[in-house]
Design a protein around this nucleic acid. Structure first.
Length: 687
DNA sequence: CAGCTATTCGTTTTT
DNA sequence: CGAATAGCTG
């Protein structure tokens, strides 16, 4: 057996071809469950083990940290440590940070630039827009993000803006960009945009990176936006040594700028590209796959492909019409419980999927009532929690004086006598002198602007920050005489202690919530300390690293035996033996927001069609998560805000073509009162 | 300035 | 129904 054969053993011909093809660019159209991760990991192994590629010359990009980590782990089992040294498997955003950190000077940033999260960005836009209209704010933030992802500068945006609203948004975009520059900060979109711009404008940088990235692999290619496509192009250059893996039927991120056209564009930009289709599904039973295929058939297709499976027919797919959302939740919880018992399965074999986050609350409650262990993925990230952001604000400020949003957050939490009016005066002064808030505090000119009782807390705060910066070795970083940098862990502990954050939490919240919040803080500092030691990172390295990491990346904690709850978006790439899809209703699963404001009916109709197609793909993703059994449910009535709404089953249920079993009234459970239900469940569990 | 109460308000999906 | 915000009092 030759070496290359040994790498690709146990793979089907298409998979093997995808792994071994190295004559040029390669596009792998990988249907759901067709083993695309396997192809990518095997290909990395092949490159490193058989083709003499050095670890540092291979880059694999994903969209989520979780996917990156998973891939990394799988590669580690295939390839010797020595060979994979320097190998980059990361998200687009992490690669962007890495590039930005190494090329900060070329990008006009200081090495300790800050990364703003969506909330910080939103407050900046709010200031610039001078409005409290939430809808308007979201719209403007969204459109700026889309512009950035389409590689449009403020000038381009202004030129293309038609409505007065868009013209205003373009102006905000301009000042927003200026504000970020003043803060020495970048937002999430910039993490990819700026490296792409840098590569295209600076030949020296471009050559350096092209020499470094000898082979590039991109996962979930259908979710790339214009900016990411550009980055891929610039990194691979004319050599074009890359493999893109994607599935147009699973494109569910158009709303954040992803364009499926990128898949088609690949075949026109690289006419010689090798097209390989992965059509055998190794995940789902035939009935499930058939339903998925029937649904997605209603969408216009970019590439013809037919998924098939030889895993047997499987059980019927069940659809339940429920009266209301609490019945639905209860019914799902009971079915999961009963099914686990009947099948002698584990909790972690079950997943409950839903369209939007707020559905999770009631489901959670139902699971708790039946003492069913669960974990939620998607939803609020660990790093979005207020207490975590509070502590991180201090770290950001330590690293970057110019990070005004961090200054404001740190200076006001915990409360230390610095309030709105003080900050406003300080802000005005800083703006007139064109310096950061932190720098402004030290100026003597400020004394005429503020009363001592306002000034004192500011000075105390700034001194505290300066002292911490010094201890963290800031002097050395900025080239001044060296301060002995203390370990990041020690500084971190001292800082949290010094601001009396624990006391702050217990004053602000009840005993129990305060405790969980404090636990979160301890978890954060613990994680940071570990990271600092393991990877020998300074406090400043940590701050930038942390900005991108989601809770899914922390710790190697092995998965507990628990039911998974997840949004459909967050479920992509995962698989479960038994899947429950909740809220499969018109208005929820095809979630169709309000109609477009601008009055062109033709465009509005087209828009609607596009949106339904994306919702359909979402449904497709949901169905194809299931390996063996699939349960759908919808509510005839759903309470929203004040009113009760009558709901219709989702059109996608019809489209699945389930025939007679299509709608099963769930009389058995719906007719019972809660007491009876509990009794029935207990009897079931006793058996 | 900070903490409390009254009122408004709203609802997709996330790196 | 529940959470974020505005407005008032100590």
């Amino acid at each position: 057996m030759s070496a290359s054969e040994s790498i690709a053993q146990g793979m089907n011909p298409a998979q093997r071809e995808a792994v071994l093809y190295l004559d040029g660019p390669c596009l792998v159209l990988a249907g759901a469950g067709s083993g695309k991760t396997r192809v990518i990991t095997q290909k990395i192994a092949y490159l490193l083990r058989e083709c003499g590629y050095m670890g540092r010359n291979v880059v694999a990009l994903t969209f989520t940290n979780k996917a990156a980590r998973e891939m990394d782990e799988r590669v580690k089992t295939l390839v010797d440590r020595k060979l994979s040294k320097g190998l980059i498997i990361s998200t687009f955003h992490s690669l962007g940070v890495k590039m930005l950190r190494e090329e900060a000077r070329n990008a006009g940033l200081k090495p300790t630039f800050s990364i703003l999260d969506a909330d910080d960005a939103m407050s900046i836009i709010q200031e610039l827009l001078a409005t409290t209209d939430k809808g308007r704010l979201r719209h403007v933030q969204g459109i700026i993000s889309l512009w950035k992802n389409a590689l449009m500068e403020p000038d381009d945006a202004a030129r293309e803006a038609i409505t007065p609203g868009d013209v205003e948004a373009a102006n905000i975009y301009r000042s927003y960009a200026a504000t970020l520059a003043a803060y020495q900060a970048v937002d999430f979109d910039d993490l990819i945009r700026i490296p792409a711009l840098l590569l295209s404008s600076n030949e020296e940088v471009r050559t350096r990176w092209q020499n470094r990235v000898r082979y590039l692999l991109v996962d979930e290619y259908q979710d790339t936006n214009v900016c990411q496509y550009r980055l891929v192009q610039l990194l691979t250059g004319s050599r074009a040594m890359f493999t893109a893996v994607g599935d147009d039927d699973q494109a569910i991120y158009a709303w954040r700028g992803a364009t499926i056209e990128n898949l088609a564009k690949l075949t026109t930009d690289y006419p010689s590209i090798k097209l390989i289709k992965l059509e055998q599904n190794y995940r789902s039973v035939q009935r499930i796959l058939a339903a998925a295929n029937q649904v997605i058939e209603k969408n216009p297709k970019l590439f013809e492909k037919k998924l098939w499976s030889d895993l047997g027919v499987g059980e019927p797919i069940l659809v339940s019409a429920m009266d209301g959302e609490e019945q639905e939740a209860e019914s799902i919880a009971m079915k999961v419980s009963a099914s686990r018992f009947e099948r002698q399965a584990q909790w972690k074999d079950f997943a409950i999927l839903y369209r939007s986050n707020h559905q999770s609350r009631i489901l959670e409650q139902a699971l708790r009532n039946l003492k069913i262990p669960y974990t939620i993925s998607g939803g609020q990230s660990f790093f979005d929690k207020a207490e975590v952001r509070d502590v991180l604000a201090y770290l950001r400020l330590l690293a970057n004086d110019d990070d005004d949003p961090a200054f404001i957050r740190a200076a006001t939490t915990p409360k230390r006598g610095i309030g709105q009016t003080t900050l406003q005066a300080l802000g005005q002064y800083a703006a007139s002198r064109e310096i950061s808030l932190l720098a402004a505090v030290a100026e003597t000119g400020l004394e005429s602007q503020l009363a001592p009782r306002q000034l004192d807390p500011l000075r105390t705060f700034a001194e505290f920050i300066r002292r911490m910066q010094w201890r963290a070795g800031r002097g050395a970083a900025s080239g001044k005489d060296a301060a002995p940098a203390e370990p990041a862990g020690v500084i971190l502990d001292d800082l949290v202690e010094a601001i009396q954050y624990e006391r702050h939490l217990f004053e602000l919240f009840e005993e129990r919530p305060a405790q969980t919040r404090w636990q979160n803080v301890l978890e954060l500092t613990g994680w940071l300390k570990r990271k600092a030691e393991e990877d020998n990172m300074t406090l400043f390295d940590l701050v930038q690293h942390v900005a991108l990491v989601t809770m899914l990346e922390r710790g190697e904690e092995d998965e507990p035996d628990a039911v998974k709850m997840s949004t459909l978006h967050a479920s992509k790439g995962l698989e479960y033996p038994h899947v429950y899809l909740a809220g499969v209703e018109e208005g929820l699963l095809p979630h169709l927001g309000k109609d477009d404001e601008d009055g062109d009916p033709a465009r509005a109709a087209e828009n609607l069609a596009t949106r339904i197609q994306e919702e359909r793909r979402l449904m497709y993703v949901g169905i194809t998560r299931a390996q063996r059994s699939l349960n759908l449910s919808w509510c005839k009535r759903r309470r929203r805000a004040r009113e009760d709404l009558v709901r219709e089953p989702s059109r996608f249920i019809e489209e699945m073509g389930l025939g007679d079993v299509r709608v099963q009234e769930d009389e058995a459970t719906a007719a019972m009162n809660p007491k009876e239900r509990m009794a029935m469940l207990k009897a079931l569990l006793k058996k």
